[in-house]
Simulated scan of single mutants.
Amino acid sequence: MASNATMLFLALPILLLLLASSAEAQLSPNFYAKTCPNLQSIVRSSMAQAVAKEPRMAASILRLFFHDRLVTGCDGSVLLDDTPTLTGEKNAFPNKNSARGFEVIDAIKSSVEASCKSTVSCADILALATRDGVVQLGGPTWAVALGRRDATTASQSAANSDLPGPSSTLSTLISKFAAKGLNARDMTALSGAHTIGQTQCQFFRSRIYNDNNINPNFAALRRGSCPQASGGDTNLAPLDVQSPNKFGSEYYQNLMGSRGLLHSDQELFNNGTQDALVRQYRNNKALFFRDFAAAMVKMGGITPLTGSSGEIRLNCRKVNS
């Protein structure tokens, strides 16, 4: 007969799964239907204006969403500024001097607060803004489950350790996403977010000068604005050389032509386990859109704060006093 200690050990994983399911079950697309009925129209309108002014902003908000969800979960921690008593995530290596779009979230939060005071979390605003930015550039839509609350802490160390880097290998990408409950197919679909936006020279310099699996003409093009020795670290280049302001499947075509800008991008098509899926997404945009939307919903459910956990921040940059 199993001992009490053994039975407790076996029951713990089941208990953790039930708790996680319970937290996710509290999220609903209709969470604010009565308390803030204009929420979705406010966010949609605000993102339409932001993207019309600067199309790149859709990608910047999408990146914030990724860098929030893949660290401590869906809690808006990436939005917190540093204070004497709190070290935020904005100065973690993956975010420092590259994460952007905070002012757009601030503006949306102000509009939402004017309509529904102390009701909607920054985490939920970021989730909605991300979806609406993707749609603005021609990407898929999905139902955003709502009801998250905001973190009162952040983790710079987790941001440094948990987020995949631009030089990540395929095995590292798979393992880091798996650690958050996302499988290899989710990872390859979510990597398609690089069909929009730009990145800095410092993140692709090693790729264009040192990698062998790169189209020589593409490498020469990118070297023009990214010197090998020094300087130009913040010079920008489009992640998708074909259509950086259109959400489509061209990203996967780039990979098949060895024109992935980041080393981590090209790892998805480098005689590895994801080659076949990359081909499928290149040839079937509808499949990519379906899988991307499903993976975004899945990522949006990573350990959200619900119920009485966390708080509804009045200012997305700081914890309520």
Rank of each mutant, 00 (worst) to 15 (best):
L64R: 05
S167F: 12
A158P: 02
Q26L: 10
E113D: 07
D265Y: 07
W142G: 08
R56D: 14
Y252V: 00
A58C: 06
G192M: 05
A129D: 05
T306C: 00
G300K: 01
L137S: 03
G197Q: 03
S264E: 07
N91W: 11
G307E: 05
N4I: 15
F31N: 09
Q136L: 13
M296E: 05
I14Y: 06
G224V: 08
E103L: 09
S206Y: 12
L170R: 12
A50K: 05
M256T: 02
E267R: 11
A293C: 01
L12W: 09
S225P: 09
R222W: 14
D186Q: 00
N160K: 01
T6D: 14
Q253T: 15
A99I: 09
L268P: 08
V297Y: 08
E267G: 07
P164M: 07
I302D: 00
F65V: 09
K96G: 07
L137H: 08
A5I: 10
G232F: 02
R222E: 15
L19D: 11
L12G: 09
V241Q: 15
S225G: 15
P37A: 06
F93Q: 09
T6R: 15
Q266S: 04
D81C: 03
N95C: 02
T83I: 02
A107E: 09
A293D: 01
L70K: 01
A129K: 06
G231D: 08
R279K: 14
N271C: 03
R205Q: 00
C74V: 14
D240P: 03
L70G: 00
N217D: 13
G310L: 04
T169G: 02
G307R: 00
Q156L: 09
G101D: 00
A23F: 08
A99H: 04
C36E: 03
K176P: 06
A293R: 00
G139W: 01
R131Y: 06
D275A: 04
L262A: 03
G192Q: 03
L12A: 12
R259W: 01
K180A: 07
K96Q: 11
N212A: 15
P55W: 02
L86Q: 10
I302H: 00
A229F: 13
L163M: 00
S41F: 11
P164R: 00
R69K: 15
Y251H: 12
A129I: 07
A127F: 04
K90N: 02
V120Q: 02
K53I: 11
